[in-house]
């Protein structure tokens, strides 16, 4: 499926959208020398297959949680994946990953301020089973946050 779906034309369409996501199907068709319906059909197929998603992203500061914490978490007595799933369910955790070795879990927590972040530690890190230690570092200045690749297709 993925082989057919990412033929040269579809890759070119994706590249055109990555360059200018607001480009119309007509414009893309003109640039790639195919018809507008062809572009529309292909974009829809890519979206249906969850390979492509042209989406609005809001500025991180509009979230009302300007403090970004990067948290290393160590787990014992429980699979890290289970702890990660619990963390992922929390709104304040905007990203949760499992690194290859250490720490057991790496996650991002967005908080209003230090007090709010400590509340997160008290209400969640202290209460989720298996978390034995954590280390927090905070972003003093985010220079770039530009997610362009994601897990659109899930598992």
């Amino acid at each position: 499926m993925t082989m057919d779906l990412l033929d040269d034309l579809n890759r070119a369409i994706i590249a055109a959208l990555q360059e200018n996501p607001s480009r119309t199907n007509k414009d893309i068709g003109k640039k790639l020398r195919v018809s507008e319906p062809t572009v529309a059909t292909r974009i829809r197929a890519l979206e249906d297959a969850k390979v492509l998603r042209v989406m609005m992203q809001s500025d991180m500061r509009a979230m009302g949680r300007p403090l970004l914490a990067l948290v290393d978490i160590n787990v014992e007595g429980r699979p890290p994946e289970d702890v990660a799933t619990e963390l992922a369910a929390l709104d304040a955790c905007t990203s949760v990953s499992i690194p290859m070795s250490n720490p057991d879990i790496f996650c991002n927590v967005n908080a209003v301020d230090g007090e709010d972040l400590q509340r997160f530690v008290d209400d969640h890190l202290s209460k989720i089973e298996g978390i034995v230690s954590y280390e927090i570092s905070t972003a003093l200045e985010v220079v770039k946050l530009d997610p362009r690749f994601g897990k659109l297709r899930g598992e």
């Binding site: 998603r53 979230m63 949760v96 499992i98």
Partner: peptide
């Protein structure tokens, strides 16, 4: 370098639009 072998959650709808 930490290779992240599994992404359990990664929010895509938030970005730094303008510095």
């Amino acid at each position: 370098t930490l290779e992240l072998v599994e992404t359990v959650k990664h929010r895509l709808d938030v970005a730094l639009v303008v510095r």
